[in-house]
């Protein structure tokens, strides 16, 4: 059993060095109200390639700022932290940024984001380089 675990661990830790092929879909951000300067954006990043990749950073249009964050909950207490080291995107896996989990935290919004608006985010990947993503603003009911 231990040997199997070890083998699995080795296999899991061995990263795939082929070419990643990223498809980004369902990008949306929660609308805001006047006075609210922060929101979160979510999306699915599907890596259909043969190599792993990593989302290194996210930028919003100034003066707004974007950061990769993760919300965690344990013992009924939720915590939000900056994601150190970026978000790993294993080959053949669709990684979801979703409410209550990994998300892009956007701060410094000067005007409310209204449903129907589209916001641009600039994502930078370790291997796939920069990508611009159109994020549609929507209501919070998802």
């Amino acid at each position: 059993m231990k040997r199997i675990l070890l083998a699995a661990l080795l296999l899991a830790s061995c990263s795939k060095s082929g070419t990643p092929d990223l498809r980004i879909s369902d990008a949306w951000a929660r609308e805001t109200v006047a006075g609210q300067t922060a929101t979160a954006a979510y999306m699915t990043i599907d890596n259909r390639g043969a190599g792993d990749d990593r989302l290194v950073s996210v930028e919003a249009t100034a003066p707004a700022k974007a950061m990769l964050h993760v919300s965690e909950s344990s013992g009924g207490i939720s915590r939000m932290r900056e994601m150190g080291g970026g978000l790993v995107l294993p080959a053949g896996t669709a990684v979801q940024l979703k409410p209550g989990g990994s998300h892009v935290m956007i701060t410094g919004l000067e005007a409310p984001l209204q449903t129907g608006e589209v916001m641009k985010l600039h994502l930078r990947f370790e291997k796939s380089g920069p990508r611009e993503v159109a994020v549609s603003v929507g209501a919070g009911g998802r």
Binding site: R30, A38, A40, H69, S71, P99, M105, G140
Partner: peptide, 17 residues
Amino acid sequence: FTHCPDVCPTTLARMVR
């Protein structure tokens, strides 16, 4: 808290739903 962009609106939106 209102500066909470993820967990709080997600929870409140869920309660409304």
